[in-house]
Every structure is written in structure tokens, then in C-alpha cells.
Design a protein around this nucleic acid. Structure first.
Length: 107
DNA sequence: GCAATGACGCTCT
DNA sequence: CAGAGCGCCATTG
């Protein structure tokens, strides 16, 4: 990580439970960086393949997977999500109402 | 320091 | 719910 900002983001992404997904803005807000949704995606972009951060549980506010730098990269994210019982609709989108992570500050 | 870029979000229609 | 336009700000060159 090149700065504390990234570390804050990774810390939140790791808190995402299995079978749930969170949006960039949500992660940013939980990381104490409201409005830095873009930086969240930017931070995940800097992640390595062997990272311990469940980056695949992070999607955009539309509930869809964002295009990655590499071609076919989003395909891997979807594969990982399906492995956690996360379903996609005909529009290749996830129902945030069902799979959206509902973070609670005190359990 | 300046200019350009980017795994995005929100509001209005 | 879906589509189009504007804003946000750290990172990079």
C-alpha cells in the first residue's frame, strides 16, 4: 500500500462477510472516507492476485461488476461471487436488497 | 506543481 | 427501474 488511505479501505473490505457484497461508496464511508468511492476502486486496482482482501465482494452502486483493466477480469469476480452463493439476474446484476451487506456498527 | 486519469456516486428525468 | 449528466478527489506522469 502506498498510503494510509489504501490501508483504511482494505481493512473495511476484509470486514465484508461471505455471501455478501458491498458497494464502493459503502466501503469508502465505512473506511471513514465518505465520497472517496473512486479511491476505493483505485485501491483495489492496486491489489495483487494473492491478496487476502476479498475484493470480489466489492461492486458498484448499480450492483454490477465494474470492468477491470484486464479483459475478462470481471469474469473472475463473478465466478468468485457465485462460489459464495451470490446470484446474478438476467442483467448480470446482484440484488443489493438481498446480497447487499448491511454493516452494523455494534453487531 | 500542473494536467490527465480512473474497479464510482448521486440527482434529475 | 433505467438512462443521461455532473461532481468528487487521490494517484500517476
Amino acid at each position: 500500500m502506498t498510503s494510509d488511505t489504501y490501508r483504511r479501505i482494505y481493512s473495511v473490505v476484509r470486514r465484508i462477510p461471505k455471501g455478501r457484497v458491498a458497494t464502493y461508496g459503502q466501503v469508502a464511508a465505512l473506511a471513514g472516507l465518505p465520497g472517496h468511492a473512486r479511491q476505493v476502486g483505485y485501491a483495489l486496482h492496486a491489489l495483487a492476485e494473492s491478496t487476502r482482501v476479498p475484493w470480489h465482494r466489492v461492486i458498484n452502486a448499480k450492483g454490477e461488476i465494474s470492468l477491470r483493466s484486464v479483459v475478462g477480469g470481471h469474469h473472475e469476480q463473478r465466478m468468485r461471487l457465485e462460489r459464495e452463493n451470490v446470484e446474478f439476474d438476467q442483467r448480470n446484476r446482484i440484488s443489493l436488497g438481498h446480497f447487499g451487506w448491511a454493516p452494523r456498527r455494534r453487531g
